[in-house]
Design a protein around this nucleic acid. Structure first.
Lengths: 339, 339
DNA sequence: CTAGGTGCAAATAATTTGCAGAGGC
DNA sequence: GCCTCTGCAAATTATTTGCACCTAG
């Protein structure tokens, strides 16, 4: 699992005015080969094993350097000393920390992140970083079962990214499929059909990619969730599809719902895509974000065009949404409550 | 703001087999008179000011004792040393930490807590405690405005508790009012009317209490949110009222919606009521939780009775809910996604 | 009188620093 | 040759401990 793959741009990461050093390289390599969260002392022990003559101070200094260079991240599990984790190819994440075996487990939660952002916004606080740590006892320790070795989180992230992307494509497919049947305007129907087709096409690609990922680790599917995101399990368009089911949804409303879904989906994929260091997961997310952005722009363009067309043909004048269903109302409320 | 009020049951808190000591009492009192998060050293300085002859070691030992006694809580802001905050009359909470001025601001988020619980459950992790810390720059530091002195969180908690309770009563009122008009069964109508009346009655009490609280701190209303809870801003029954608006809602469904709302509300108020040390906020929450529990039981009893009555009179047989609206479906999905 | 409580000084533990010598560019 | 890196030992910081003495119950 530990990839000894070259770290392609370590040199680019290097802060200006520093020199290459075989000792530092050794320390960095030993660190990167290790999984999990090492304390400075753990690393000293490992280093001593490789080269007796490297001193404790150098390890400390290198650790500091690695932090500045963005290779390592200092984490504090409240033990009275720091630990370090890979930062390279590793997004910021949260931790479950077992007080019994001192192991720690990583996870991401888009939901928690949004809430944290909301709290910060409510207090006019500029958040730079947030720490979420759950202390307790892990499954292995409380049941006595063997502690199943965890896959590296890069793979888990890619898996969850793909799962969410696939669910989103599926729900998008359903959404646009339903839209085709619903909308009256021929042009709008054309657009919805086009988008439905695109979703189908992408779905195939994503599923192939997922299969490929599974080949890298046959147990991958059975590993626990790494990236938690409530809205995504059924796809980000599922709520929109529900909304299409309500009666009284006209073409413009259908567009608006679509726009809302695409925007949510774009934001989500962009957030994680940007955060993750270069990797498969990042790749999927960024491609996806881009695609959703295109859809989003298309929908907005078409929405405006339709509004204009309807106005020109003397259709009922529609400035603001005339009617908001339960979904819309619930959202407005949630927004108000977050303050 | 710093209440010099007697700490009524310090003696009861004292671990068994310990002696009274004037030095320890002094340290405890100095600590409790202080707001905010003190480091051991901050406290030593304060103590030295009061009595030169108290040693650093004693302060450390007393801090340790206070933690065991549940008076103080150790918090780690990643500075490489611990700080201590009041635990007495102070619920567990989360922190916003300003890296510029080193001040820290407290908040509670029911929403984050639920998500944390869900993540832990998904990993079969027994959570004992969780830490949420948002690092960044506070409003005062980024705008250069005067740092508005914060009210103590006991008062803020009470305020938010009351706000949520009031919003819940209001929405409950609306819910049961609508229910009265909706349900067909005369007995059910009677029950809904009774509950509506009770909500009105309670609302008056709560509002009076809120006014009283405002008298304790005229600026209280303008202070920032302490307890974040999305669902609550419009009252925990608002979603239920929306659901009543759907067509095809029969008496049983109305009961079920009421039960769901009361249960949610009961859980929320119980969770925070129990967590908070003896205080006004705790008081409101526990009374409220109790009241909701009674309503809940009443509704369940009546629901069952109605099912039986309908079955006996040969009404359409209703075992499981025959129809779930958008709300129900959305909930089921959320539940599935949380895994 | 005796189990804690306390002061003092020394110990520990994690991490940093001063300084002189070594090594990459 | 210059500037950075490194080792070593000493310093620093936060916290704990051993031990003799003190004090409340």
């Amino acid at each position: 699992m530990a990839s000894t793959a070259a770290i392609p741009d370590l040199d680019r990461l290097r802060p200006a005015g520093t020199k290459r050093s075989s000792k530092r390289d050794l320390i960095v390599n030993v660190f990167l080969k290790q999984e999990g969260h090492l304390s400075a002392d753990d690393l000293v022990v490992l280093i001593k094993r490789a080269d007796q003559r490297i001193s404790r101070a150098t390890v400390y200094r290198t650790l500091q350097w690695m932090e500045e260079a963005g290779i390592a991240r200092k984490v504090d599990f409240g033990e009275g000393r720091f630990r370090f984790e890979h930062s390279y190819r590793h997004p910021r994440h949260f931790h479950l920390i077992c007080k019994t075996c001192n192991r720690s487990y990583e996870f991401l939660s888009s939901d928690i992140e949004s809430l944290v952002e909301e709290v910060a916004a409510a207090r006019a606080f500029t958040a730079r970083q947030s720490v979420v740590q759950i202390y307790g006892t892990c499954d292995a320790c409380s049941t006595g079962h063997a502690p199943e070795e965890s896959s590296n989180s890069e793979l888990l992230f890619a898996r969850d990214a793909l799962r969410i992307a696939i669910a989103t494509e599926r729900s998008g497919m359903e959404f646009y499929g339903r839209g085709v049947k619903l909308v009256k305007d021929p042009r709008a129907r054309e657009i919805f059909r086009k988008l439905a087709t695109e979703e189908v096409h992408h779905l195939t690609t994503l599923e192939a990619r997922y299969e490929e990922l599974l080949r890298q680790d046959p147990l991958l599917e059975s590993r626990p969730t790494f990236l938690f995101f409530k809205g995504a399990a059924n796809g980000l368009f599922a709520a929109g599809t529900d909304q299409l089911r309500r009666d009284g949804v006209d073409d413009l409303e259908a567009y608006r719902i679509g726009i809302r879904c695409e925007r949510g989906s774009h934001r989500f994929f962009k957030r994680y895509g940007e955060r993750f260091e270069d990797s498969e997961g990042k790749q999927v997310f960024l491609e996806f974000a881009e695609e959703e952005r295109e859809h989003l722009e298309l929908l907005i363009r078409e929405y405006r065009a339709l509004v204009k067309r309807q106005r020109d043909t003397g259709h009922k004048p529609l400035g603001a949404p005339k009617r908001q269903g339960a979904g819309g109302r619930a959202k407005a409320r949630a927004r108000a409550a977050s303050r």
